[in-house]
Design a protein around this nucleic acid. Structure first.
Length: 417
DNA sequence: TCTGGGGTCCTAGGACCC
DNA sequence: TCTGGGGTCCTAGGACCC
C-alpha cells in the first residue's frame, strides 16, 4: 500500500554546524568553510547568514570573499566531520533498523512496518504519528550530538529528498499553508505530490542540474507543474525522460526507477558494484615540466593503491584525468589484469599520461582513478603481523600503525618538501 | 588569481563473438 | 559476396550529487 514512509534526513549546513560545535564563538556569525583565501578552491559550506549575499557551495573562494568579506573563513577538516555523521547514524538506528547513509550529511530511513511501534494515543493518524516521531528524532540528535537536522517524508526517495529541502529552517517562507514549510519536518501525503510540489522550480527535482534546467527553460518549462501539464504528443527525448522520472517519483512506482528503489541496500551482496577509488589534485600553480608532473602522478598512484589495499580490493581499470590550464579536460583509461600494486598502476598511468598530455599547454589538475574493482581479496587483507609479500605491503604495515603520510617514496615527496 | 574533490550514473560508438 | 542482429566489454565524455 502506498504510504509516505520513506524519510530523508539532512544535516543543516553540516560542516558549518560542526565548526560551530568546536568553536562556539562562530554561532550566529557568518561562516564560510572552504579553501584558504589565496588558494585555488571553492566554498564547501556556507552558513545561512551569508546565503542572502549570494554565497553558495561550489562558488570560487575569491568570489565568496568579495561577496562576504566580513565572514569567518575556515578550512574543511574532513577527518573531523565523519565521526559526527556516524554518531547521528547511531541515533537514527535506535528509531528504525532501516537506515541508509547517502552521503556524509544525508541519510534515508524507512519506516515501513514501524507504524504500530511508534503510534501513540493522541496521534490523529499514521502520518501525524510519523511527524511527531520525526520531531522527537530531531530533538534527540540535537540533544545528543548537537547538530540540527531536517526531515522530509514521502512515498519515494526523491519526494522525501525534495521535502527535506522544504523542511529546512531559515528559508524565505510563505505564510503557513498547512505544509509546515521550514518547521524541520515536511511530510508529503500520498497522492498529493503534484499539489504540494508542482509549483517548485524544476531545478529542485533531484537529477535536474543547471544544464537540464537551462535546456528545459529554453522550451518554456520552469516548474514541475508546467512539465506535467504538457499535453501529450511528440516530445523531445529529454522532456519525455524527465517527465517519466517525475511521474515515477510522484506515483511511487518501483519499476524502472533506478535510483529511486524503496528497498535499501547498504552493500551489494554480490559485490558487483564496488564502485571506484580516485584521487585528484589541483596544483597550487600550473605545471609544465614533465618531471614535476610525474612526481605528482606517483603520489596520486600511491594514495589510490593504498586505499584499495586497505579495502582489500583490486582494480582492473586505471583512468588518468588531466586538466589543462584553460580547463580543457581529458581522460584516458586502460583495462588490464586486477591489481592494487603501486608499480603496476604507475606503469599504466605513465603510459596514459603519455597519451593524454598531447597539447603544449601547462596542467592545472591531475587525477588517478582505479575502477572495475574486484575483491575483497583475502590475500591482501593485512592484520598486523601478516606476512609481507611485496614492497607495497611492507609499506602498508607501517601505514596501518602511523597513517598514510608516515612513509612515502622519495620520488613522490620531491626535493622541495 | 575565476572554476575542489570524491563519487555515481548515463550515453554513444566501436570491437568482437556467436 | 552481402547483410543481419543481440550481447558484452571497453573507452570517452558529460551531467549530476554532496
Amino acid at each position: 500500500m502506498r504510504s509516505p514512509r520513506i524519510c530523508c534526513l539532512d544535516l543543516d549546513t553540516f560542516f558549518v554546524s560542526v565548526e560551530r560545535l568546536l568553536d562556539p564563538s562562530l554561532v550566529g556569525r557568518p561562516v564560510i568553510v572552504g579553501a584558504r583565501p589565496g588558494q585555488r578552491g571553492v566554498v564547501v559550506a556556507a552558513s545561512y547568514e551569508v546565503r542572502p549575499l549570494g554565497v553558495h557551495s561550489g562558488m570560487s573562494m575569491s568570489e565568496a570573499i568579495r561577496l562576504a568579506p566580513h565572514a569567518e573563513f575556515r578550512s574543511p577538516r574532513h577527518d573531523t566531520y565523519g565521526p559526527y555523521a556516524r554518531r547521528v547514524r547511531a541515533v537514527l538506528e535506535r528509531f528504525t533498523p532501516a537506515v541508509q547513509t547517502a552521503s556524509i550529511d544525508e541519510f534515508y530511513v524507512d519506516f515501513h512496518g514501524c507504524e504500530r511501534l511508534h503510534r501513540r494515543p493522541g496521534d490523529v493518524d499514521d502520518d501525524a504519528a510519523l511527524v511527531r516521531l520525526l520531531h522527537e528524532l530531531r530533538a534527540t540528535v540535537h540533544r545528543e550530538v548537537g547538530l540540527p537536522v531536517s526531515a522530509g517524508v514521502g512515498c519515494t526517495r526523491r519526494v522525501a529528498k525534495i521535502a527535506s529541502g522544504l523542511a529546512k529552517p531559515n528559508r524565505a517562507l510563505p505564510v503557513d499553508d498547512g505544509r509546515h514549510l521550514g518547521s524541520g519536518v515536511v511530510l508529503v501525503p500520498a497522492g498529493q505530490e503534484r499539489a504540494w510540489l508542482g509549483s517548485l522550480p524544476l531545478r529542485r527535482f533531484p537529477g535536474i542540474g543547471p544544464k537540464a534546467e537551462q535546456r528545459l527553460a529554453q522550451l518554456g518549462l520552469h516548474t514541475i507543474e508546467e512539465l506535467l501539464a504538457l499535453p501529450p504528443g511528440p516530445e523531445l527525448d529529454e522532456v519525455h525522460r524527465v517527465r517519466g522520472w517525475i511521474q515515477g517519483a510522484f506515483e511511487g512506482e518501483t519499476l524502472d526507477l533506478g535510483r529511486d528503489r524503496p528497498a535499501f541496500r547498504e552493500h551489494d551482496p554480490e559485490g558487483s558494484t564496488l564502485g571506484s577509488i580516485s584521487n585528484e589534485c589541483t596544483f597550487p600553480r600550473d605545471l609544465s615540466r614533465r618531471a614535476e608532473v610525474e612526481q605528482h602522478l606517483l603520489a596520486l598512484v600511491e594514495r589510490v593503491c593504498w586505499r584499495a589495499r586497505a579495502r582489500g580490493v583490486q582494480g582492473r581499470t586505471v583512468t588518468l584525468k588531466l586538466r589543462y590550464r584553460d580547463f580543457h579536460t581529458v581522460q584516458r583509461s586502460r583495462t588490464c589484469a586486477p591489481t592494487a600494486e603501486d608499480a603496476e598502476v604507475l606503469k599504466t598511468a605513465r603510459a596514459l599520461l603519455e597519451r593524454a598530455w598531447s597539447r603544449r599547454v601547462s596542467i592545472r589538475l591531475l587525477g588517478v582513478c582505479l575502477s572495475n574493482l574486484a575483491g575483497p581479496d583475502r590475500q591482501l587483507q593485512l592484520p598486523l603481523g601478516a606476512p609481507i609479500r611485496s614492497p607495497s605491503t611492507a609499506i602498508d604495515v607501517v601505514r596501518q600503525r602511523f597513517g598514510f603520510a608516515a612513509i612515502r617514496r622519495g620520488q613522490a615527496v620531491g626535493r622541495s618538501r
